[in-house]
Amino acid sequence: MIGIVDYGRGNLRSVEKALEKVGFEAVIMASPNELSKVKGLILPGVGAFADAMEALKVGGWIEPLIEFARSGRPFLGICLGMQILFEVGEEHGEYAGLGLLAGRVVRFPAGRKVPHMGWNSLELEQSSRLLEGIPNESYFYFVHSYYAEPADQGDIIATSDYGVIFPAVVGKANVWGAQFHPEKSSPWGLQLLTNFGKWVNEDDTLSSH
């Protein structure tokens, strides 16, 4: 079972339906109380960095999410949910993120339309089970004005080009993030969710605890 974090931000239903479409059971979680029951977790999100962190704080999510990541179970952040995996966000000030990945989230420099909205292609930087079966230069749907700058280049799995090259997929150990919306990126986005779902099913971290 894959949990989807509901903290009042993001199109949860789309993520749930996309997972169902590719054959995985998902549950939308309105509180962190049942986190121990899920084998994998998706953190969606749209809106502003600080708002999202505040909503997570109010919902009592922050410590449980960090704990979940530490437990070794597969954890995927989508869009803003990927950005807040990092240490610091520079949206409307400077705010602390979950700090599960090292680095900052910065705004696209002037000279292009912001938000970056639409279908952009991926340049695969390293192989990963999350992107298994997805060809280089496949297209995904993005909507965002900020992007992550990981402190460790090794955390960058794939990049996209919007006048600046920015990370489109990041990850380290069991914590992953996609800047685009896989649930809205038919057909390759569904492949990514399939890969995540399989990983969750094969992962035995929960049973070994």
Binding site: R13, S14, K17, A18, E20, K21, Y141, H181, E183, K184, S185, S186, P187, G189, L190
Partner: peptide, 8 residues
């Protein structure tokens, strides 16, 4: 539509 369509 949200159950069948996976583009925005």
């Amino acid at each position: 539509t949200a159950e069948e369509v996976f583009i925005p």
